[in-house]
Design a binder for these strands. Structure first.
Lengths: 229, 229
DNA sequence: GAAATTTGTAATAACTATATAATGTTTTGG
DNA sequence: CCAAAACATTATATAGTTATTACAAATTTC
């Protein structure tokens, strides 16, 4: 079972978090202080840390930094709403995401899942994530960020390239627009999903022979898009 | 898995280094003497060497020299005092980098990663560190630190040259400003990324025919810069 | 230790990518 | 075959990035 570590001094909040996690088939340990949290980390193997910003013994940043000295485990900071300026500081210091109290339980679970998945991808693909991808007449070079169709370069913008690379890294897998927004645009981005539609359109314009009959980027009606191999 | 060789007589430090490396998905062997280290190198295939300056049988320089007789593998020297570093740097004995005890684990890992990546780049481009680089009308001489455009010398400052050489060593690869800061300015440097922008500007001024339409140093919008071949 | 050069920073101008909205088209289920 | 939903297409304003300039701080040179 996947274990999550909750570092939070207010027991009521910690238990609330644990309840939601357990409802979603995670197991959760609670540590009331930063020190206790660090000890739990040493003694156990967790998939993710939920870290309160305000702790009795040391602040969340400090804990975050100490965790990062030994591990790349995903860290989600939990903060009170009015502290959002400082949240950015937290992200700069090694946290992967932040969520404001009071939080939406679904969002919490969604983020936990997403970060665990991201981490796994990072680790598992760590070796060949820079390797060229060749599919049909299409060549994608992650290192140079260049894309060729029939050995002819097509210049993509940053987002276009990121989107293409993400999809082409898992060919034939269907991604919902929401999923693509989350993975390519990032968790902070709360825009409209039509953004994805438009980007898919522009991508097709650049890499497909006939954008209205795409051979690389397929539409899966009612579900999302897939990169066909 | 990537293997690292630790040559260090103090077991507690060696084990600390190994722990950090293993947390970051490296495998590490420990050798307590220079002689033992050299034997490990013969018997195994490593990606990098962490080399203590003070060893019981021979000093780090000696070991370094002996390694260099047979291999161009990245070597990071680990030294006791900060002051020693400046002295060592001046000597230029073939180590690729230096780090002082007590070291920051993140920095250690960051440097290990960076040097392995750099080594791979050099190998894949089939280029020796000191070999001249010729691209179009541009000639870069690492040994003399001179740069010519159409056989006409352009005098660059130290940073300008380092930046140009770094980028030109991996043509077409896209580097973010953060990456350039880290690699060219060093890990200790915590300045603003606009510094990179300005240096790029100055470089273009000196080597491009029309700096506003650069043919060597290209801008990759939203990502960084690339040296075009 | 003064002068000259290099380097870093800050301010603002110029530019590009991209999000969004509006409108048109295709698909699907009843 | 119709209506509703999902997607495609297009145009545009804006947010975000980079270029440029000027200046201050640091470093090197003499």
């Amino acid at each position: 079972m996947e274990k999550i570590l909750i570092i939070e001094d207010e027991l009521s909040i910690a238990e609330l978090e644990r309840d939601y996690l357990e409802l979603n088939h995670y197991e959760a340990d609670i540590a009331a202080t930063g020190q206790e949290g660090l000890e739990c980390l040493k003694a156990n193997s967790y998939r993710l840390v939920l870290l309160d910003l305000m702790l009795p013994d040391m602040d969340g940043y400090e804990v975050c930094r100490k965790i990062r000295e030994v591990s790349e485990i995903p860290i989600i900071m939990v903060t009170a709403k009015n502290e959002d300026i400082d949240m950015i500081r937290g992200l700069g210091r090694g946290a992967d995401d932040y969520i404001a109290k009071p939080f939406n339980p679904n969002q919490l679970i969604a983020r936990v899942k997403a970060h665990i998945a991201r981490y796994d991808r990072l680790v598992s693909t760590g070796q060949n994530k820079d390797e060229d991808i060749r599919i049909g007449d299409l060549l994608i070079q992650p290192v140079t960020r260049k894309v060729f169709v029939n050995n002819e370069e097509r210049t993509l913008t940053a987002k276009e390239f990121d989107l293409l690379l993400f999809m082409a890294s898992s060919p034939n897998q269907v991604f919902s627009k929401e999923h693509l927004l989350e993975q390519v645009w990032g968790f902070e981005f709360y825009g409209d999903v039509t953004t994805v539609t438009v980007h898919i359109r522009r991508l097709r314009e650049k890499i497909e022979k006939d954008p209205s009959k795409p051979e690389y980027i397929g539409t899966v009606w009612g579900v999302g898009y897939r990169f066909k191999r």
